[in-house]
Every structure is written in C-alpha cells, then in structure tokens.
C-alpha cells in the first residue's frame, strides 16, 4: 500500500428542497424580523459605475413548466472586469458594486429578476479575453447538486465568437442557450433544465 494522500472528501450536496427561501430569503418567505433585509436583494447603489441592466428569466423543467421554488444566484465582474473578492489580485473592484445577487423569483410566476450592471471583460486562464458574462447558480427542489452556467450578451457577437469558453461547446447549436435575448431595455435569460433547448451547464 502506498501512503495515503490524506485529502478530505467534499461534503456531498443535497437538494435545497421546497423551503430554501426560509433560509436564504426569509423576508420574501414571510419570516420577518430575523434579518433586516434578504441577502443579495440589491447589487447596486446610485454610485455604482457602469451601464444599468435588468435581467429576467425563468427556470423551466422538462415539461416546459417554470419552477416556482427555485433560488437563482449570480456572480459577475464590475464594469472594469474586476471581481469584488479578496481573491481578485488584479486590482480593486468598484466598492459600490457587490457583484453577487440572489433572486427567489416572483411568488406567482417564479420569474427571477436582477438589477445590475453590464460586466467588463475578464481574462481566461491563458490571458485571452472572455466576452462579458454573468455566472449563474441554480438550486431547487429536485436539483441534487447546484447547477452552474453562464449568461452572455446578444450585442457582443464578435466577443462571443472569440470567447474561449463558448468555443469549448462541442455542439455549436447549443451556444445560443448561453446567450440572453434582448427584451425591450431588459435582457431575458431562460434556463431550460431538460429537452431540446437544455441549457449548457458547467462542470467547473
């Protein structure tokens, strides 16, 4: 027998279940007075730099029904492409932009909504630029391990064409599942868990 590597195993995931909102957005769930405000409810203030955008969308199951019990989180760079993280080594991000948002979805429709800014360009592992993108993380009852994906911007066609991550999608017909649609002044980004339109999810 060789020596043991002595690494620990990551704690296994379990579904967020139907009551994730009690723990993550208690005010939304009607549990008032424990936290002043639900975490991640607002990402920007009036001093935040960058172009204000709104993103809406639904998480859709294999029957085409929108989930009403999902929790969606996003993480993104500021308008200069810097992350508001202690592990951002390239500079200091806009202190008026958290970079992280959380949406429980509308009570009736389950539609998520984020008021944020358009992110700047972040380098890939080899230094090439990645097209502006927002990382999404989706949990819900029936989802055993949180799902990672990304949203890209439809007006960034040239940057998207050169994006090293989109370039890794083997079936090019699936790339549009990662690109939001312009909906008036807003963006629409529906996430399909299954079926012909299944969103590309990441093992990352």
């Amino acid at each position: 027998m060789p020596q043991s590597l002595n690494y620990l195993k990551e704690t296994p995931s379990q579904t967020a279940g139907p009551y994730v909102h009690i723990g993550c957005t208690p005010n939304f769930a009607g549990i008032k007075g424990v936290y002043e405000q639900d975490l991640g409810a607002s990402m920007v203030n009036d001093k935040t730099k960058g172009e204000r955008i709104t993103i809406r969308g639904s998480v859709i199951d294999g029957n085409g029904m929108a989930l009403k019990d999902a929790l969606v989180e996003i993480w993104q760079a500021d308008s200069d492409g810097l992350y508001n993280s202690p592990f951002e080594t390239r500079g200091t991000a806009d202190p008026n932009f958290s970079g992280w948002g959380r949406s429980a979805g509308e009570m009736d429709t389950g539609e998520f909504c984020f008021h944020t800014i358009k992110p700047g360009v972040v380098p890939f592992t080899d230094g090439r630029p990645m097209a502006p993108h927002i990382t999404f993380w989706i949990v819900a009852r029936g989802i055993n391990l949180g799902l990672h994906t990304r949203m890209y911007f439809p007006e960034e066609n040239t940057a998207n064409q050169a994006d090293p991550v989109l370039g890794r999608v083997e079936h090019k017909s699936r790339v549009p599942t990662l690109i939001a649609q312009k909906d008036g002044n807003d963006y629409r980004f529906d996430i399909h868990l299954q079926g012909e339109l299944e969103t590309v999810f990441f093992d990352i």
């Binding site: 029936g142 989802i143 990352i204």
Partner: peptide, 23 residues
C-alpha cells in the same frame, strides 16, 4: 428530480477567475 435533471453532458472546464472568486 426526473423532470429537473439536466440530461446532456456538462461542459467540463478548469476554473477561470469567474469561478475562483466569489462573494
């Protein structure tokens, strides 16, 4: 989980800054 499980292969990638950082 039956109707809420992705069925296509995941896109496997090494982390970029977008995943190495977080709130």
């Amino acid at each position: 989980s039956i109707l809420r499980s992705p069925q296509k292969a995941l896109l496997s990638l090494d982390n970029t800054l977008s995943e190495m950082t977080g709130p």
